[in-house]
Amino acid sequence: MPDSRISRVFARRADEGRGVLVPYVTAGFPDPDATVPILRAIADAGADVIELGVPFSDPLADGPTIQASSFRALENGTTVKKVFEALRAFRETHDTAVVLFTYLNPVLRYGDPAFCSDAVDAGADGLLLTDLPAGSDPELEARISSSGLDLIRLLAPTTEVERVAAVSGQAAGFLYYISRTGVTGARAELPEDLVERVREIRTAVGLPVAVGFGISTPEQASAVREVAEGVVVGSALIKAIDAGGAEAAGRFVVGLRAALD
């Protein structure tokens, strides 16, 4: 496995027998000044890899909670450059791995080579593009993969077994398994086929797997930890931030951390 901040934290947690906690926050939500304190709070609370959402006007893979946070961030004047600035400020104090989570168009408009090099420069470790599935744009994918960012790949419940191997062959860092067909958002129950599907994928890939979409409580995180190395929590954290800012975010992440240790 190539050496990156992301692969190192997965390796370290594996040695310790602990789960990898991957919280998601939308940059610029609820306001631009809140981002750095929130990043610091969740890092201090035990986040291993932070997914930092770069807001997009048409977040078609996201449910209502993350949509609303994205619209609010854009209304507040959040831009790609401001996200990079916040990340740079976070890097002055923290070493926690960061994956930028966004859609393709803001990256293309910025210019993908410039986006990747500025992202690396600001301290990003990975890039996850919800609308760039593996194989959809080989030249672009190759440029991102060689930029110094881990290109994080997604697998879905509908991904055919043959495709799982092909996708994971191009992935770096970890594989993000989407727990259910659908958009992001907290759900009461985990899908019934989750354990079986993740086990199937675990045997086919050489990378650690993190599971996301619909995981909102420490109990769910703990259940997912039984089959996968990592757990992604997004919408539930956004709700905590909405209710109580950085402090509430920290408290919420402490609870998740305990469930994975």
Binding site: D131, A134, S136, D137, R153, E162, R163, V167
Partner: peptide, 20 residues
């Protein structure tokens, strides 16, 4: 088993969709 780039009109078109 291979990842082909499908359905293009020159550089336009393609399949920029969620994996699902």
């Amino acid at each position: 088993t291979t990842l082909d780039a499908p359905g293009r009109f020159g550089r336009f078109g393609g399949r920029y969709v969620p994996e699902t």
